[in-house]
Design a protein around this nucleic acid. Structure first.
Lengths: 269, 269
DNA sequence: GAAAGCTTTCCATTCAATGGAAGAGGGCTG
DNA sequence: CAGCCCTCTTCCATTGAATGGAAAGCTTTC
């Protein structure tokens, strides 16, 4: 199909173009796109032109290119993110009112946490997570919950891969991490203290779907003051996560209840 | 490229596939997609497969297909929607606190209003607008503001097209609509009473960008009680819209001020 | 004013994309 | 349980849509 072939489909190239926007928030020139997506300028130019024509991208007056409203519309209107967000938001608001800190919900995407929604109090502390942003799975409360309930292959992949030390408190030892994950499963929540930001503590609990699979994690981020503080938020957080799960059609009861009731809660991190 | 050619690019077909999801919120089967996108099953099957491979779509356990997290991520992370939402949210929250009703921000997309963000009070009245949802430009306060400040060609296209009568109060007469638009430009806001929902009144004001172009409209939706009520919300609304504009880099002053100060405010609808 | 970097067009080349056909599987009905 | 209907999936001969190097215009910078 091409003069000197590269053996790629149009769609592969197109996704590379779209992903080129992933790292910046804003607009790109065609040449920037061609470099980021590793495509010949001519090809980038042609594909961008076509995408603009179709409304997936938009051209600014100065010829720079950005993601188009239509792509946003399609993606927002019928993504799984929307279902989850919609169901979760009221519970997040309640949680928010109770805790007065950052509240967020995230899912597992590859070996990252992808944050779908976030509410922040006006005067809340710092929080590195952003909506549609990614963070590593081993260094966030949300990630630990998701990893703990993910298929073994993925857990092995993460445990075997690089476990970057974001702060002194990040768990980078596979053995300790494995124990931590077991604790998360047992306790039904996790407290990740200062693992990605030395000034913040994350608490997270699993959210389940109709088939009782863990599809997301609800979390609260509070400023680090002492190791004693965050514990107090566990009951509201777990209750909110259960509320969302129930609203998603999960049949929550028995097994789960035993853990949070029967065991004396203990810090997992 | 094909046995019997249809003369379309891959991207055109792909966009049709993506748009097939626009009308439903949830998942589709391949056959449904092939029908909605008007593509041969084999083609739909192949393209869907490739899109799944690339992470743009996702396959549910039961083989149904939905928009993938990656597409949502790309679209949310660097869409113009995000910039606007991010800038606007704090002001919307303030407005929300003051008015205790629905607050929303929308842009012009084709001949529709596309709503980017929305905040609702717990006990707020009904509101037909949804995030990532569309509503007709002539029957919503947001739409009227956007239309009033849009290029003449577009105005003519809307005025010449079908002006659907959603309620008894929808302005469907091109002449009256033209006058209404002039009033919107003069007043710097609009009150659209019961135009799309007989139980609701919308108020909207323009949001401008760095080049002082109207890029969005901020609006508040309150329940209809009497024609006197909504008027009271105009000052806060206009102030919030100006706040957003200023935060976007617009140089607001003189001309605009005269309108809202000098003229006695009068109902535009 | 010319160098550097960007966008845009051109077009001969060629392989990725096409879609009808047919098989496999699942579910409902009489 | 056979027959029907609908869906998903694979196959493959065919061919025109997609390709990218080259070169011409533009715009910006120094």
């Amino acid at each position: 199909m091409a003069r000197s072939t590269s053996g790629e489909s149009v769609l592969t190239r197109t996704m590379r173009i779209l992903r080129a926007f992933g790292t910046v928030s804003g607009s790109l020139t065609v040449s920037e796109i061609s470099r980021r997506a590793d495509l010949p300028v001519a090809t980038a130019h042609r594909l961008v032109g076509e995408l603009v024509e179709l409304g997936a991208l938009e051209r600014e007056p100065d010829k720079r290119v950005r993601i188009g409203y239509q792509l946003w519309e399609v993606a927002s209107r019928s993504s799984p993110a929307r279902d989850l967000s919609r169901t979760a938001l009221p519970y997040m608001e309640d949680l928010q009112v109770a805790v007065r800190e950052h509240t967020q919900i995230g899912v597992l995407e590859g070996t990252d946490v992808l944050y779908l929604e976030r509410l922040s109090a006006r005067d809340a502390g710092r929080n590195v997570a952003e909506i549609a942003g990614r963070l590593p799975v081993h260094a966030t409360s949300t990630g630990l919950v998701l990893l703990a309930h993910s298929p073994p292959e993925l857990q092995e992949r993460v445990l075997g891969g690089e476990l970057r030390e974001h702060t002194r408190h990040t768990v980078t030892d596979p053995v300790r991490l494995r124990r931590l994950l077991a604790a998360v499963r047992r306790d039904g929540y996790v407290i990740a203290s200062r693992m990605i930001d030395p000034a913040a503590v994350g608490l997270a609990a699993p959210v389940r779907d109709r088939e009782n699979r863990v599809v997301a994690a609800l979390s609260v981020v509070v400023p680090f003051l002492s190791d004693a503080g965050p514990q107090a938020h566990v009951p509201v957080l777990v209750a909110a996560a259960r509320g969302i799960s129930r609203a998603m059609g999960a049949r929550i009861s028995g097994e789960d209840m035993i853990h949070t009731r029967g065991h004396a809660p203990r810090p997992s991190a």
